[in-house]
Design a protein around this nucleic acid. Structure first.
Lengths: 342, 342
DNA sequence: ACCCGCTGCTGAATCGGTTCACAACGGTGG
DNA sequence: CCACCGTTGTGAACCGATTCAGCAGCGGGT
């Protein structure tokens, strides 16, 4: 009986009644204030304040069809690369008074599909997606249905989808050249699943660097897969390698979190190898420079990636159609003390 | 002229026409499939597939009023504590087939207000907020308007808002007792703005620990404010202290990122003080154990905080009203080598 | 033959805004 | 005095779904 009935949100009709005008006028006050005489406008604004009226976005969008919300789906919200990119997105969107809604697919195609559907149902004005796999089918269908989509951190194989990415092959090559230049001839790559393109590309870059040195990639490069791209998974996968003889002396990790896991595992199991194992990470996250052994890493312009992607999403060509484009940023090798000579 | 007119999204009416049924039937197929004969249902499903029909969430919500989306506003998406909490939220919501939309206020009340309004306009079924300041007015109004709201990482001063928080006074006290136990009698606290409650509480906890030791907080504790809670801001604020004589020998940082900044600054300017300055951080982020000097830190159960908050948001009492509650988790001190004796 | 109840479907009202054709009105110029 | 104009404001159609009263058809009981 004391069941508190939720007070119904007040609608534009309530406001109109209180202000003694028609709903059309209230709508005009909201959207084209200059079309309304000042006295009337004040009365309406007063009524809005008194009722603490908040317009219903569903109703507005249903009729007007427009929305200033952009959706983004990243692989893992805990990965600093993605959060930094998300900040870039937000920063660009804020300039256009748009807002970001962020979701994390956890590298699970099913979750990705759920969020894609959710955003489409809500009619977002654009979508930024870091795809979980190679199957762009769902995204292409989405684009065909008129949802302007930009691939994040993945070059688009088609003109139907725009993209902003970083050249991962170049990044892998930089890491490889660096390690080869230090004299290493056996390089272990701690890589993620090949379903993730970044992982494949970074390996390919490493192999290309080896070839350029006139060596055989199959001899030099040994790939070890880790199931999850975090420190724990990397540590677990690296542990058995440390028991081998000889233990790896040059390790290229698919990201910095994995590199941190490798360092942790070396310190725990074979501390004598600490200063004698070259480690190169990827992403150059903020704390890479602060680690027990400051980490050599391939830096990606994460903020720029997000910013540029949002920019692409918002820009229209002369005809008012969404602009299409493919942007590829170049990574940069940051050398610190973790990459020791052979 | 080649202006590609966006193909209009197909509606439930299009589906009905193609399947040769009424819109009501299509709606039934979508929401109560058991009410529809199998043959009819198959025809409708076929039409849905052929048109790649996606229901319009705005229309649905406008009429039905329900939504399975929850909004969350955190202070900074780059702070691992918040992203970990966000994962906790997502994990709990997924169980109930709800989805999370995440936004970051950047500790800016204006941005916070914008997102609050956005989420309210969209009629989210609940809201998780880490408030930017002490002014809960807007949130109380929101709650009064029927938006179920849970304060994240802040104990609620009122029963109108639920809350899930960690006891920051206890955390500050733990840090203080640890440093005092190590013999330190001058403690510098690198703190954030007092507009943030966490910052005030952690300082208060530190002061209380000093009192318990029979000492005068004003003599022992020196507070230095940093404008932003990241490594860069902390490093900048700490630099002048390093020029003083004597330089600080015990530093309690309001979070781990700040502690990392302090370590960086010491290493850069006074490397001789490296092993002789006790540092305690807060949050125990994943890499705290991997730093050049592994960091003593106060651990917060971030994932649990998010999970529990989402739980509170979803739970209803026997009358079907949203449950109210106040949960306070206890932090835990993790001692590593950064906290050296005096 | 008639009524009852059940299943399966229809058609229209409804949610809360936006938008547009049009009306009301006071002022202006010929 | 009238035609005309610009400024304000009105009222209804409309967006795309949900929901519910009601109807058609059919089998079974009496």
């Amino acid at each position: 009986m004391p069941r508190t009935t939720t007070p119904r949100r007040s609608s534009i009709g309530d406001v109109a009644r209180l202000a003694g005008v028609s709903v059309g006028t209230v709508s005009n006050v909201l959207n084209r204030p200059d079309r309304v005489a000042e006295a009337t406008r004040d009365r309406v604004l007063d009524a809005i304040a008194r009722l603490s009226f908040v317009p219903n976005a569903s109703a507005r969008q249903l009729r007007a069809g427009t929305l200033t919300t952009v959706g983004a789906i990243v692989l893992d919200i805990r990965n600093p690369f993605f959060t930094e990119a998300a900040r870039g997105v937000e920063d660009r969107l804020a300039l256009a008074d748009h807002t970001l809604m962020l979701a994390s697919s956890d590298d699970d195609p099913e979750r990705e599909a759920r969020y894609l559907r959710l955003f489409e149902e809500h009619g977002v004005s654009g979508l930024l997606v870091v795809p979980t796999g190679d199957d762009l089918g769902p995204l292409l269908q989405l684009a065909a249905r008129g949802v302007h989509t930009v691939l994040l951190d993945m070059p688009s194989p088609t003109d139907a989808l725009s993209s902003v990415a970083v050249d991962d092959v170049a990044g892998g090559r930089m890491a490889g050249e660096h390690l080869l230049g230090l004299g290493h001839r056996r390089i272990t790559m701690l890589n993620g699943p090949h379903t993730i393109r970044q992982c494949r590309d970074r390996l390919a870059g490493l192999q290309r660097a080896v070839e350029r040195h006139g060596l055989d990639p199959d001899e030099v490069v040994r790939e070890v897969r880790i199931p999850t791209l975090d420190a724990g998974g990397a540590a677990a996968a690296f542990a058995p390698l440390l028991a081998e003889d000889p233990a790896p002396r040059a390790v290229f990790c698919v990201n910095d979190l994995a590199a941190i896991g490798v360092q942790r595992e070396i310190r725990r199991r074979r501390p004598e190898l600490l200063g004698r194992t070259a480690i190169v990470g990827y992403d150059d996250i903020e704390i890479a420079a602060e680690l027990a052994t400051p980490l050599t890493s391939v830096r990606q312009p994460a903020h720029d990636v997000g910013y540029r992607a949002a920019d692409l999403l918002l820009s229209r060509d002369a005809d008012g159609n969404p602009a299409r484009g493919h942007v590829v940023f170049q990574p940069e090798l940051v050398v610190r003390s973790s990459s020791v000579p052979a």
